[in-house]
Design a protein around this nucleic acid. Structure first.
Lengths: 341, 341
DNA sequence: TTGGTGTGTCAAAGCGCTTTGAAATTTCCT
DNA sequence: AGGAAATTTCAAAGCGCTTTGACACACCAA
């Protein structure tokens, strides 16, 4: 069933039917009713491709999903997507997801944008000096970035959490508890959040004249295996750290396994603070020793970004260009006073 | 940059340029080269919406993502999507994801199909007597179902794992170990896999004249919280079960927490077998007591379904209509002989 | 009666692509 | 050299929708 058939069925022109459907004022209420009834009966739905071609809009948000044969699926991605979806469903928006090799992201994003089947773009996994920004700005298509790009002028719309403050606060807490030997288990070194979190830690430490040692910093994919490996390395250090900052509860999962295997007690021998994205599967309060965390819901960020994206497409703005969310520091049992040795 | 502009630039007609691009034989090699070079220089990309309108195809797979404000994100969904993506990226296919309230899935699927921006559909979270099947069959659009629909004639293309055999085997193993009091921690009762798994357990038990008690069966969303609650209930039973079958490692996560909190030993006081979808975050071998599991990779299923879907769209078939994968039963430390009491 | 003002409806153009059927050009054979 | 066959290119139609500009028609004031 297409517009032409529907209009013939009704004995009206395509124009009138289209206007009736799209809520234009210049159509008789009785006619509109009649059209709407026919739509319900026939189950007619406008062809989105045609609609898009005609209007340039079709109610869709585009995003790139990093993927590759060896590439591990990322719970953070799914959680964020759920947030986007929660908002999108309210506006009858859908997503166009372009899977792409992580090394090919800028090209993939470009293809997605000029493919002409999205109205707006969402971009994540930001890097320092991210090359996608220049491309995005040249595109004249609305976009919102999750995160920021360290080293780039922040003249683009973003939503980010205050990573630096989060890890600064966490470090301060551990300092107050008397810790002096710190380690940071971070995400991939080129990612923006990793850079900022590290800076937060370093700044807090340097206030007390302390430094973050090279061998007390790891950068890796955020999987539990990597957490385990990193922690095992820390524990073998001659002066082993007593305070661990951890960029994700996923890493913490592995890290804690290592702590247990070494026969150490979390919250006593080792204090640990992890960043909590509020993943349903990894509730910090459900760890055998509940985790002290910096918290910010990834899903909530997804909802908000969808709001801004959809709002911009629908011209329902204005929206703030920049949002920087504070994280909460929630103290549980994984942190305690520095052990006396 | 569009076709018209590009062809003017080259001094060729749109037809010739289009043919050159799409690999038609009736265009001079030299001309093709020239076109290709111009494409590279200008960065021209055909507008997908127009392409779809003209051809009816645009290289996309549609799927519905269940979502709602309270609805918990599902790691299984993300893992499967990763599999789909891994294959899709090889063929330059993308996804159109329509978020929808779980109660609205059939309507959402229908909208997605007739919206005219997907070439094929993927359907999951199958239920017994699933109402989507009739609709899909009436649609004349390729689709593949992940799972099956209990109680419906299997005259639709699917890929499924042999849930019944998996749980039958698992139950048999526990029977051999001398267990007589069984419990099943299952997924939502209306879902196909839950029905079949239950059947597998019941069949194995009845061979020994045993029954699966009503109060030893739970159906719930597969979250760790629900696992915890279910296990706590089991443990309070007057004749508490010693053998637990568990539909997911996610449920097992909570279940084991309950076992620990009760001061019981997994693999001694309680034996547990879980189904393992090979989620990167929940490796059975990384549990404090490594888990005996029935295993089948969700991601691999995603890859395979994407192959079939894309292959069908590209007419690169034929593909088997039905695939039923066997699961592996992998024995680790969470199962042991029934305790003598 | 004439002219102006809304209303409600329509035919036709256009979005950017593919594809059909025909025309122009080259190549091959006798 | 001359005509048939093969090769290369083209103009135009069509995919399903929105939107522009025009056209009837009724209504009221002058």
């Amino acid at each position: 069933m297409n517009l032409k058939q529907l209009s013939e069925l009704l004995g009206l022109s395509q124009t009138t039917v289209s206007r009736a459907l799209n809520g234009y004022p210049e159509v008789n209420e009785a006619t509109r009713e009649r059209v709407l009834r026919a739509v319900k009966e026939t189950g007619y739905r406008p062809n989105k491709a045609a609609q898009r071609l005609a209007t340039g809009k079709a109610g869709s948000i585009g995003l790139v999903m990093p993927t590759a044969p060896g590439h591990q699926s990322d719970v953070h991605f799914g959680e964020f997507l759920t947030g986007l979806g929660e908002e999108a469903v309210r506006h009858d928006f859908h997503f166009v997801i372009m899977p792409a090799d992580p090394d090919d992201e800028v090209a993939a994003l470009r293809r997605l944008a000029i493919s002409g089947n999205v109205d707006a773009l969402f971009v994540a996994y930001m890097r320092g000096h991210d090359p996608r920004l220049a491309m995005l700005k040249s595109l004249s298509m609305p976009f919102v970035v999750h995160g920021r790009s360290f080293g780039t002028e922040p003249d683009y719309p973003y939503l980010d959490i205050d990573n630096e403050a989060a890890f600064n606060d966490a470090t301060r807490l551990l300092l107050q508890l008397g810790h002096t030997r710190f380690a940071l288990m971070n995400g991939p070194a080129h990612l923006d959040f990793a850079i900022r979190r590290r800076n937060g830690v370093v700044a807090a430490l340097s206030e007390r004249g302390l430094e973050l040692a090279e061998d007390c910093t790891t950068h890796s994919v955020m999987s539990d295996e990597e957490g385990l490996i990193a922690m095992e390395r820390f524990l073998q250090l001659p002066e082993r750290p007593t305070a661990i900052l951890c960029s994700s509860t996923v890493l913490a999962l592995g890290a804690i396994r290592a702590v247990n295997q070494a026969g150490l007690k979390l919250g006593e021998d080792i204090s640990l603070i992890a960043h909590d994205d509020v993943l349903p599967l990894l509730k910090p309060e459900n760890f055998s020793v509940p985790l002290t965390t910096t918290r910010s819901s990834l899903r909530a960020a997804g909802v908000r970004i969808a709001q801004r994206l959809i709002g911009t497409v629908k011209q329902a703005g204005p929206f703030p260009e920049h949002e920087l969310w504070k994280t909460e520091l929630i103290v549980r049992a994984s942190t305690g006073p520095a052990p006396q040795d």
